[in-house]
Design a protein around this nucleic acid. Sequence first.
RNA 1: CGGGGUGUAGCGUAGUCCGGUAUCGCGCCACAUUUGGGAUGUGGAGGUCGUCAGUUCGAAUCUGGCCACCCCGACCA
Length: 492
Amino acid sequence: MSEVITPREKDYSKWYNDIVVEADLADHSSVRGCMVIKPHGYAIWEKMQQALDKMFKDTGHVNAYFPLFIPKSLFEAEEKNAEGFAKECAVVTHYRLKNNPNEKGKLMVDPEAKLEEELIVRPTSEAIIWNTYKTWIESYRDLPILVNQWANVVRWEMRTRLFLRTAEFLWQEGHTAHATKEEAIAETKQMLDVYADFVENWMAVPVIKGVKTANERFAGADDTYCIEALMQDGKALQAGTSHFLGQNFAKAFDVKFVTKENKQEYVWATSWGVSTRLMGALIMSHSDNHGLVIPPKLAPTQVVIIPIYKGEEGLKKVSDVANDIKKRLQQKNISVKYDDRDSHRPGWKFAEYELKGIPVRITVGERDLANGTIEVARRDDLTKTTIQLTELDNYIENLLTEIQSSLLQKAQARMKDLTTRVDTYDEFKKVLDSKAGFVYAHWDGTPETEEKIKEETKATIRCIPINNPLEDGVCIYSGKPSQQRVLFARAY
RNA sequence: CGGGGUGUAGCGUAGUCCGGUAUCGCGCCACAUUUGGGAUGUGGAGGUCGUCAGUUCGAAUCUGGCCACCCCGACCA
């Protein structure tokens, strides 16, 4: 048992934080609220980026890059959006420093270098992008525009948590422009499906697709679609969002196009994003008290080989076999690391790679050499098997597939266990306090009721699930009639 | 921004009440023995005790200001 990780049962937040730090994913930086993503963490993010980027390209999108800074006048153009983000914006007011005459060796902001117009550090890029699209779009022939950008954004959060909420974070934001409402809505839904597909099939995290209520909607959107995942502690995590922006930004930035019939019309818009928050979802879905568990499809290193030997000639003999194993697996497109460092003993390495979540560990010792075997250990269920070296290639390839699907199945089973239907407010509160998780309950559809429930229980409506079955009932709070159950949970 | 707490070696800490020049563990470096689940021994390096000022012969310790970080609330992907 690892001593470096606080047990999950003892303190879930501490457990999470310990995993992030001890598995070398990220660290607090000397900038308040900002983190350093370390190589192991960044490598996982890169795997996510690669998979998502391909999915975006496969659905016809292209990448571009827009500026970090947004002039205040552009930022405020779409009123609701500006208002929504106003409280958490970093603002650039000056462009120069100078030596402080009163304190040698110190710098100060040069008061003479004040900017004419303040620049907002982007919390999201709709403003700068729609200001640009205005110049790109004239006719229906210029549409659709299907652009994505990989970028960093800044939201000045009061309380931060590694990956889940940091002042600066990495994400992708897709911004599309369409000639018709129908096409824009189809795009919004398509990207929601892409996200759900990615999160389930790459991250092995099941999600519920749905629509946000007015209260939870993105500022400036007509509709916000989301995927909601459920963490091990029964709290929900919004894993991705896709917004149907209507003509709000087109109107704010005066982006019109000429139709086939030679009429002027406002452009329809969408935007959609996922962020490094996905790292948090990944960690909180699969990891255990031994450390991180990474699904094979996202593991930067899928297999690690550890030698066990006596003396230098022992190491040499084992290394010959280990290097051969490495080569064979690499030919199968499996990423392999052979750790022949002499500075640590095998037991130390076992614990280390478990902590870091490497899906499969192969141990080769001199005893194996004699028998033509190797020992294979799975990270997800910590079981060990001895196999014949001759079966290696297929065995490992199948094992990686098996681990990937087993992780998803386990997460699906957990989500099912942690989902409850309730019919009364008392029951609702009891479930939230005793087992947490997703709670399906009737709601009268008013923002007031939603707000009251949030105040009293800290639970929010995560979404109204897509294709939600209609069912007559009464609101658990107000007793008014309701046509469907919505998805409640306490959330990150 | 409110309420609470903490700053001592890379990390975790003792010492603070009662002032006398900093303890222990992990880690790090060297060498040796080790290597199938976080090895052992021996030797070694590493500190302006968050910061500034005050009291004192003398401050990690007492007093005051400042700074940083953490936890709980309001806000949030």
